[in-house]
Design a protein around this nucleic acid. Structure first.
Lengths: 144, 144
DNA sequence: CACGATTATGTCGTATGCGATATAATTAGG
DNA sequence: CCTAATTATATCGCATACGACATAATCGTG
């Protein structure tokens, strides 16, 4: 007997992720950002001047996704990309003025998203950790 | 102080969904299916002969996503698409022989995915319901 | 130091997703 | 019954994602 999508854990993740991006849209559209672009900036706001590979490791994205993404962000004046002087293979990504300015303009986003979840902060953190545990299990299986 | 992606609930969802699709890949590749195609077939295995709109409601996808998806599935011999005789606006989607045959060939997929989660069935169901609750909260905010 | 292996990024093709818009069929109101 | 509004799909453009492959720089070893 087949299982309906609505009853699957995978589909709850799939649809919740879509709903999450939809919830971010009214917050990010005024800033001219997409959700993945917001993630890249969030990573750079914590630690500026990272290589493409380091960003990919944090965001679990391959360079074939990141390179075009970063090029669009560079064209929008959000970040700068330049080759590392010491190791010319690496490309270092830094915040451009516009990306730096958005740090303030986006300061309200986390609280607004928390509000949209309809959950308390402890509940959100607990669910986050459960989902992270699931993710890490799934990744382990993929590598084995 | 900015929040790192790794600490965000949204990023745990985002990355867990990617990990989930990666975990499905070795299960679905041999069947020649993508994950969204598997969802469509799962819906049809429960109830055959549904309209594009009904599938979209179940899977939370717009017709601008579903129409090309269903056309690819039709080209692959998985489903058939025909206009409803009574209401010519609607397109009814039914299982084609190949899509019907995959019902058996994909019978092992749910158990294999459950195994990949590293969680027990009750744990999976509990997490599914928590994620569904979050999704429904986020959707409510979007519509209000 | 030469040279094959490794590493870091980039390109190309394909499949989603979605906003905005188009089109055809049905319904509703006067 | 006739036309405006609504409904159901479809098309177009753009931004992810990722597998497969390409390229350039660095490293390791004899």
């Amino acid at each position: 007997m087949p299982i309906a999508p609505a009853d699957m854990l995978c589909f709850s993740l799939y649809s919740a992720q879509h709903a999450m991006q939809a919830a971010y849209k009214p917050l990010l559209d005024p800033l001219g950002l997409t959700y993945p672009q917001y993630l890249v900036l969030s990573a750079l706001w914590v630690l500026d001047d990272q290589t493409v590979g380091a960003l990919g490791a944090q965001l679990a994205l391959e360079t074939n996704t990141l390179t075009p993404l970063l090029k669009r962000m560079e064209a929008a004046g959000l970040v700068a990309r330049r080759r590392d002087k010491v190791d010319e293979r690496q490309v270092r990504v830094t915040l451009a003025p516009e990306g730096e300015a958005l740090r303030q303009k986006a300061a309200h986003v986390p609280a607004c998203f928390l509000e949209a979840t309809g959950m308390s902060l402890p509940e959100v953190m607990a669910l986050r950790d459960q989902v992270k545990t699931l993710r890490d299990h799934l990744k382990l299986k993929a590598s084995s």
